[in-house]
Computed example of a mutant assay.
Amino acid sequence: MVTATGNPGKAARTAAKSRTGWGNGRVVAARIGVIVLVLAAWQVVSGTLIPAYAISKPTEVAVALWQVLTSPSGWTDIGTTTFEVAIGFGLGVVAGTVLGLLLGTFPVAGRVLEPLIAAINGIPKIALAPLFLLFFGIGTLSKIAIAAIGVAFVVFYNLYLGLRQRERQLVEIVELMGGRGLHTLLYVTIPTLASPFFAALKAGGPLAILGVIGGEFIASTDGVGHELFDAAMALDAPSEFAGLIVLVVLTLVLNGLLTQLDKYALKRLGLAPRKARARS
């Protein structure tokens, strides 16, 4: 028989629920209730307290979103943006990982190049968009480049600082036990860098989307950002909010995939938090 003493984790969760009276079901219901209240307030104030052309109405946004999701051009824009985000994110992760590992492994190179990288990172990425447009044109390559550079810097700094903070004593212990470079990599470096690496991925996802949308705003022929720009120029608030909803969904999907990848990788590495085991 499982007792509270034998399962402290379960006992703590049960005690927390009893104190607050809020389980997962009630939390989800509360979130839905907040969304419904916000939509209802939005519907009421639109056209009364705030001009309808500025914020539209939820009903009109729903119609505009339906038009986007039922038109071939709408899915073309979504597909273009998704492709640019995915490729730019992937290239940024690879570039940042390689650079972070190289400069973190070779301290002299890190001391020489890190200030230069910091100076380049200080430039707003959207300010580099016109330069990439000159290099790669107004097609997908320029948007991919903008997304990749933003992600690369985040991944680089997380891995570079992670390597610098790696405990030297653990490395020496592995070496004293006869371990070689591969053993140090498997038992010290990878466990040390796993958490900062996946934190960088989650931080880089929104940056990739931001870079792509910014590039599409400046110059593009398709994409969600292009449609947002056209809607803004036409003062089409419903289409503007519909495009924003598409971006929110894209961000949630990307974050969800990265979260699952994080959990799977940490579990495979044996770094996932262990649940308290029930004792009978």
Rank of each mutant, 00 (worst) to 15 (best):
A208P: 05
P206H: 07
I138Q: 15
L141K: 15
P196T: 09
G214F: 02
D230Q: 06
L182N: 01
L193M: 08
A199Y: 03
E240P: 02
G204D: 05
L131F: 02
A232T: 04
V171G: 02
G178V: 09
T184K: 09
T140E: 08
I146H: 10
T189S: 00
M233N: 10
L201A: 05
I146P: 05
E175T: 11
I218E: 09
F241H: 00
I173T: 14
G205I: 06
Y157K: 02
Y157N: 01
G181N: 01
L182C: 03
L235T: 15
L186A: 12
K202P: 14
L228P: 01
A219W: 06
L182W: 10
G204H: 07
V188Y: 14
D222K: 13
P206L: 05
F217N: 04
G137I: 11
E216R: 07
Q165K: 14
F135W: 15
D230T: 10
L210G: 03
F153R: 07
L131T: 09
A219D: 02
F153H: 09
L182E: 03
A231T: 06
G181F: 00
R164A: 05
I149M: 14
L210A: 06
L193S: 06
T140Y: 15
L161K: 04
Q169L: 07
I213D: 04
A231S: 10
R168G: 05
F198R: 05
F135R: 12
L185R: 14
F217P: 07
F198T: 14
G214M: 00
F156A: 06
L235M: 15
F136K: 07
A152R: 08
N158R: 06
L193K: 00
G181V: 01
S195R: 13
A237M: 02
V212F: 09
H226P: 03
A232N: 00
V151Y: 02
E167S: 15
I190Y: 12
K143N: 04
Y157L: 12
E172G: 08
S142V: 08
G205P: 00
V155W: 10
D222P: 00
F153V: 14
I173W: 06
V188C: 15
H183G: 11
E240Q: 11
E167V: 11
P238R: 05
A231C: 02
K143L: 10
A199K: 00
F198M: 11
A145S: 10
G204L: 03
E167Y: 09
Y160F: 13
S195V: 14
G205N: 01
L182M: 09
E240W: 12
F136T: 11
A237C: 03
L159T: 03
A148K: 12
G205K: 04
S195I: 13
F132D: 02
I144W: 12
G178N: 14
A219T: 04
E175R: 11
L161H: 13
L133I: 13
F136E: 11
A234N: 10
I209E: 08
R168E: 10
R180G: 15
Y187C: 09
Q165A: 10
T184A: 11
T192A: 06
P206S: 04
A219F: 02
A232F: 04
S195E: 11
V224S: 08
R168T: 08
I218M: 11
F198N: 08
G181I: 07
A152T: 09
